[in-house]
Amino acid sequence: MKFDRKTWRLIATAGLFLLATVLCIATWAVANAPRSGPDRPKVTDWMQAWGSIAGVFAGLAAAGAATALLLFERRQAREARAELAAQRAESDLTGARLVVATSPEIFMYGPAYVSDVAVTVHNFGPAPILRVFVVIKLFPGADELLPAPANVIPPLSGEARFAVGLETDPMKVPHSDELLLGESAEVTLYFTDATGQGWRKGKVGQPEKVRIAVPPSVQASAPAVSPEGD
């Protein structure tokens, strides 16, 4: 077992304190001991007294060492837990990074109108993802498109296709370049991993942990649950 610098400083401080205390007691005893007469302490008295003092300080030293060891072990356990938590967080983040959405496939209806939009989500991670939502925004200011969610996408190259049909109400877009629209569109994923952690992931940046992995617009449209008995 190897103590860190802080623990050694604590042990050294406790040792110096004990030594200083012993020297103070010794100085006081010598200064106040009778020089002669029947009350003058004998060698056996000194040995017994110093033996008692040594026993007390040995006990204190043992208690100090045990305390230092306990503090050291607690610190080691705390660091180990923090390291394990960091490893788990990194593992979860790696799995979320491996969920990838393609750029939207866009089908035009006449000049500058969109009739259909589709996005494919791939799960290259080692575990399935659950309750997957896709939110598509074709251009700034456009209404969000919300295809039906997928209950599960299997791991290791599993995929699901999310499509929205706008034939009855085509969306007018700034231009008719399907490829350019698909590349510039904003796609946001919401999903839950196998551990129950919710995630939100856009086209750029790192995945973000969320408490509820459901698009805000879907949460707002969910029916309110009345309290029991109402």
Rank of each mutant, 00 (worst) to 15 (best):
G51L: 12
K2Y: 11
D39C: 03
K201Y: 05
P216G: 05
L10Y: 09
T44D: 09
A33I: 13
P155E: 07
A33Q: 15
A12P: 01
A66E: 06
A63F: 09
G205S: 11
E167G: 05
E167Q: 13
E105P: 01
F133P: 00
R75M: 02
I136Y: 04
G158I: 03
D169F: 14
T102W: 03
G196R: 09
A33H: 10
L146M: 15
Q76S: 06
A33S: 15
L69E: 09
S91L: 08
L138I: 15
V214N: 05
R40H: 11
A31H: 10
F139I: 05
K6Y: 14
V132Q: 07
L180E: 13
A29M: 14
T195D: 15
L166G: 02
G15L: 12
A112W: 00
A80T: 04
D39T: 04
V214L: 10
Y109F: 06
R78Y: 12
F72G: 04
P147Q: 10
A150S: 15
L145Y: 12
V218F: 06
D230Q: 05
R131M: 06
P126W: 11
A160V: 13
E144D: 14
F107P: 00
F191S: 01
T44R: 07
A63V: 14
K6L: 14
F133E: 02
K137D: 12
I212W: 06
A148H: 07
H122T: 13
S115P: 01
P147A: 12
G165N: 08
V132P: 00
R40Q: 12
Q87S: 11
R161E: 15
A33M: 09
A89N: 07
I212H: 11
V117G: 06
I136E: 00
A85F: 04
V187D: 01
R200W: 02
D193I: 00
G55L: 07
A29N: 08
E178Q: 15
I106D: 00
V100M: 03
D116P: 01
A68I: 06
N32P: 01
D230E: 12
K201F: 05
L156Y: 05
E228H: 07
L60F: 13
T195I: 02
K42F: 03
A185F: 09
Y109H: 14
T21R: 03
T192P: 00
P41M: 13
V132E: 10
A224C: 06
R81F: 12
W8V: 13
T120Q: 11
P215Y: 05
P227I: 05
L180Q: 15
P216M: 03
A220G: 10
K2I: 13
P140L: 15
P128G: 06
K172C: 03
I11F: 07
S176M: 02
V117I: 10
V152L: 14
A29K: 09
P174N: 13
R131H: 11
G110I: 02
P111I: 03
A220D: 13
T195W: 07
P149V: 15
A142F: 04
D116Y: 08
L166M: 15
G37Y: 09
A142K: 03
L138W: 02
W8A: 05
V204P: 01
V114S: 00
W199S: 01
A65Y: 13
S52Q: 08
G165A: 11
L179W: 06
E73M: 10
G205H: 06
F72V: 02
H175L: 08
G51F: 06
P216T: 03
